[in-house]
C-alpha cells in the first residue's frame, strides 16, 4: 500500500513540477489536472470513496474554470531574467523551504507509521455513530450530526464566496 501511494505521489510531484515550469499556460493548467486526478486514485487506495467522488467532480470543474480564464488571454508566460530583487526572493524562499523541511523531519518522529495510526475520537465514532444517527454511511453521519456546525459554516462560506465572485465580476470598471 505504502509503495503504491508513494509511486502515485511521485507522479503527482512530477506533474506539479511540470505545471510550475511550463511555458504555455494552457498546458500548465492541464498538468495541474494530473495532480488532482492522481489524488482521486490515492483516495480510492486509502478507502475513502466519498472523497474520491467529490474530488473527481470538483477537479473537473476547477479545470473548466481555469481553462475559461486562460483561453481568452495571451496564454504565454513572459519570462525575463531575474533581477537582484528576484534573486533575493528566490534565495529566501529556498531557505524557508529548507528550514521547514528540517522542522518536518523533527516532527515526523511523532507521526505513527502509515496504517497503524488510530485517533482517539475514531473508535467512539465508529462504534457509536451507526446506532446514534441511524446512517449506514459513517462519513455522512459525522458530517451532518456530530460535526453539524462545520457543515453549516461551510455552507455559509460557500454563499459568501459566491457573493464575492458576483460582486467582483459584475463591477463596471472605471473608464
Amino acid at each position: 500500500m505504502e509503495v503504491a501511494i508513494s509511486i502515485i505521489t511521485g507522479l503527482m510531484i512530477l506533474g506539479a513540477l511540470f505545471a510550475i515550469h511550463a511555458k504555455d499556460l494552457l498546458s500548465a493548467v492541464i498538468a495541474c489536472g494530473i495532480v488532482g486526478y492522481g489524488l482521486v486514485i490515492c483516495f480510492l487506495l486509502l478507502k475513502a470513496p466519498d472523497l474520491a467522488i467529490v474530488q473527481i467532480v470538483v477537479d473537473t470543474i476547477t479545470l473548466i474554470m481555469m481553462v475559461a480564464v486562460v483561453l481568452d488571454s495571451s496564454r504565454e508566460e513572459s519570462f525575463s531574467r531575474l533581477d537582484t530583487f528576484g534573486k533575493i526572493a528566490a534565495a529566501t524562499g529556498l531557505i524557508i523551504i529548507v528550514v521547514l523541511f528540517y522542522f518536518f523531519i523533527i516532527a515526523s518522529s511523532n507521526l505513527d507509521v502509515l496504517g497503524k495510526s488510530s485517533l482517539r475520537m475514531a473508535n467512539a465514532y465508529i462504534h457509536g455513530a451507526a446506532q446514534k444517527t441511524g446512517s449506514a454511511n459513517l462519513v455522512t453521519g459525522v458530517v451532518f450530526d456530530f460535526r453539524g456546525y462545520d457543515t453549516m459554516g461551510e455552507a455559509v462560506v460557500l454563499v459568501t464566496a459566491v457573493l464575492g465572485v458576483l460582486t467582483i465580476l459584475r463591477l463596471k470598471g472605471k473608464k
Binding site: L46, K47, A48, D50, L51, V54, Q55, V58, I61, T62, M65, M66, V69, S118, L119, M121, A122, Y125, I126, A129, L138, V139, G141, V142, V143, R147, D150, T151, E154, V157, L158, A161, V162, G164, V165, I168, L169
Partner: peptide, 27 residues
C-alpha cells in the same frame, strides 16, 4: 473501518477549496 473523522474534515475542505479557487479566478 477506516477512520471517518479526517475524511469528514477533507470533505468540507474540498468544497471550500473550490469556492476559494473560484474567488481567486474572479480576481
Amino acid at each position: 473501518y477506516v477512520d471517518p473523522l479526517p475524511q469528514t474534515l477533507v470533505l468540507t475542505a474540498i468544497v471550500i477549496g473550490l469556492a476559494t479557487t473560484a474567488l481567486l479566478m474572479a480576481v
